[in-house]
Write a protein that binds this DNA or RNA. Sequence first.
DNA 1: GGAATAGTGTCTTTAAGACACTATGTC
DNA 2: GACATAGTGTCTTAAAGACACTATTCC
Lengths: 251, 251
Amino acid sequence: MVNEQEFLAGYDPRAYPAVAVTADVVALTIRDGELQVLLIQRAAPPFAGFWALPGGFVRPEEDIAAAARREFAEETGLGGEPLRRVHFEQLASYGTPERDPRMRIFSIAYLAFAPDLPEPSAGSDAGDAQWLPVTALSTRELAFDHRKIVEDGLERARSKLEYTPLATRFVGEEFTIADLREVYETVWGHALHAGNFHRKVLSVPGLVEGTGATTEHGGPRGGPRARLYRAGDARLLHPALLRPAREETVR
Amino acid sequence: MVNEQEFLAGYDPRAYPAVAVTADVVALTIRDGELQVLLIQRAAPPFAGFWALPGGFVRPEEDIAAAARREFAEETGLGGEPLRRVHFEQLASYGTPERDPRMRIFSIAYLAFAPDLPEPSAGSDAGDAQWLPVTALSTRELAFDHRKIVEDGLERARSKLEYTPLATRFVGEEFTIADLREVYETVWGHALHAGNFHRKVLSVPGLVEGTGATTEHGGPRGGPRARLYRAGDARLLHPALLRPAREETVR
DNA sequence: GGAATAGTGTCTTTAAGACACTATGTC
DNA sequence: GACATAGTGTCTTAAAGACACTATTCC
């Protein structure tokens, strides 16, 4: 074997088997009080019949984030202002040599958060696309390493609720404190104390700002009208809204 | 123009200009009481003479993390147990189309943390390699988008000190509380209150565990011998060691 | 002896959480 | 009227930070 130096000096990626880069999207929304993730049923091999994240090759001259948005838009049919309101952030990259049997494919995963989205329309390379409650993920066979990617995305989402105003991306432009609490409860999977949550949210500078208005009606099962709020200008929450202690998971 | 569906169905990355994937490393250490980052001076175009992060193409059949470790090892000359003690984690990926003038190159950046490392030996594709105090970064011209990558790495490091025991990776196997405090002060760029820091570190479960031993001597300018500690088994700190409030940077 | 540092004691302030309660709405 | 919910009051506990102090060691 040649030594490292010679190998490196002569190393030219063009002389080696081609690699490709895809942008895959873990798109999360809250529908029917459940946290749901967007999945596509694959029509063609490999993993035909399995469910996969929306995604595809990053095109020449296309930015990675743009590719992620494009794939998301294609599968959801979303565009214009609604699409612009969706929050995208890079999650992580995945590239073990054997993750795709066809060739070496690196996947750069993005996380997308959007309020209550409609049922998606399928793209051409997908037999079917649908929102799946994350609690039902264990019943589906996921293609490639997409189960790991979804898990990483869920953990990122749970953790970002703590110290960013991300929760406001899961609700409409105007929302009540109870709407926001439902987001936290759904993503964290814990019931929260309504009174303490209320006070806490209002005490964090820049998290929400009141609109002066209230809901038109009380809740479906009674209760007074709730005040309406907009997202504030904070980009980090201080102090943070920490998850109930999870000392068990810490070691 | 063909519509999206046709485009996608016929899209084959092998029919398009080749792309390549590199693993680049933001390697941080604390030397001489300063946070330093490992840089390589480029010998060949593009960006000849500029400073760059150690890194290189991910080889066929090679995992991305393995490529990052290999590049780091090549530049530092580290191996065996010392290399194994270095903490690596994926930082983020960078892939704007124009970031490398030669071809489309996606960079998957890793963050490495290591205690006080020796002066590095240069690899073959580098005219020179050296540790640079991060405070001196503004005096150097960095190649590609490496300045942005370093900044992202620094912010990640600062933030990870808060809620993980990462600081213990910047010190030797046995350390004093003052050693640990120096890490926090150096990475955060703030002086911390010695007494409160001491109590806080000991109060976080699993952050450190005592060895029973103390230093051989007091400090160079006096003071009693300090007790020695090892890293504990916590993987997350609870409660966290939060940075002094930065309300200014929050909006 | 003078000075610096390790480690502890104590008090104040802030934040989190438990619990209770009032007012307002739905059915 | 029964019941659920929005929003607030109050108390307890945990944690962060300011400050002071003792004991130990170097020069």
